[in-house]
């Protein structure tokens, strides 16, 4: 799901209200893909590219634009989206969350599953790590914003670092996986060294390459 931001004229006022929004819920845009709807801006708006840069500097991840006027310069980095009638149905309420004084507790950032993940099941946890006390079956998938720990056989798919976390890792007691992915870099079973099959293994990213090694 992507969020849609629609800047309104006057842009300066809109930016101010956006800033106050961000100060009230600092993590709201973290890791969320954003589509910018520029349709409300008048054609003669100066320096639209500058506005987009300003948003990027605020940590907003723009994945595309909509409604840009053909005369605007400097938007090449943000490709226009051709949404086929899939416009969002309603505006989203931004939750008011207090600025955390201390980092969130470990509990809030990890998910523990104490039973096997069965074929066809999908466990997704974008906020952090997933630990599974059991096996992940063929045809099941586990998707985490952080790392994935499987204290059993990993026979399905494990997708770690979903929110752009290249330091995420995947650990399993027995590697039989169909697919491993970290921050968009993936390997299928065919790509994995046969010597690692059935072994306790960890996977991590070294640059753009996925590395796999036995744990013991």
């Amino acid at each position: 799901m992507a969020l849609v931001l629609a800047p309104e004229p006057p842009v300066r006022d809109w930016l101010e209200s956006l800033d106050s929004q961000i100060s009230r819920s600092p993590s709201f845009f973290a890791g969320r893909p954003v589509v910018l709807d520029l349709g409300a801006l008048p054609t003669e708006t100066p320096d639209v590219a500058g506005l987009l840069r300003t948003l990027s500097e605020r940590g907003i991840r723009i994945i595309g634009t909509e409604g840009a006027h053909p005369s605007w310069q400097g938007l090449e980095a943000w490709a226009p989206l051709h949404a086929n009638g899939t416009r969002p149905a309603r505006p989203i309420d931004v939750p008011e969350e207090p600025v955390p004084a201390t980092p969130p507790s470990q509990d809030g950032n990890s998910l523990l599953i104490d039973q096997p993940v069965r074929s066809g099941q999908s466990i997704a946890f974008e906020r952090g790590d997933i630990t599974i006390m059991g096996s992940v079956a063929s045809g099941a998938e586990v998707i985490a914003g952080g790392s994935i720990h499987v204290y059993g056989a990993l026979r399905g798919r494990a997708i770690a670092g979903l929110t752009g976390n290249s330091r995420a890792r995947i650990f399993c007691r027995k590697l039989e996986a169909e697919l491993l992915a970290i921050d968009g870099v993936y390997q299928t079973a065919d790509d994995m060294a046969p010597a690692l099959r059935g072994k306790p293994v960890q996977a991590w990213l070294a640059g753009e390459a996925m590395m796999l090694a036995k744990l013991d």
Partner: peptide, 13 residues
């Protein structure tokens, strides 16, 4: 076996 695993997941949910 894989289909049975899927069914077990449904029995549990």
């Amino acid at each position: 076996v894989r289909d049975s695993d899927r069914i077990i997941g449904m029995l549990d949910s």
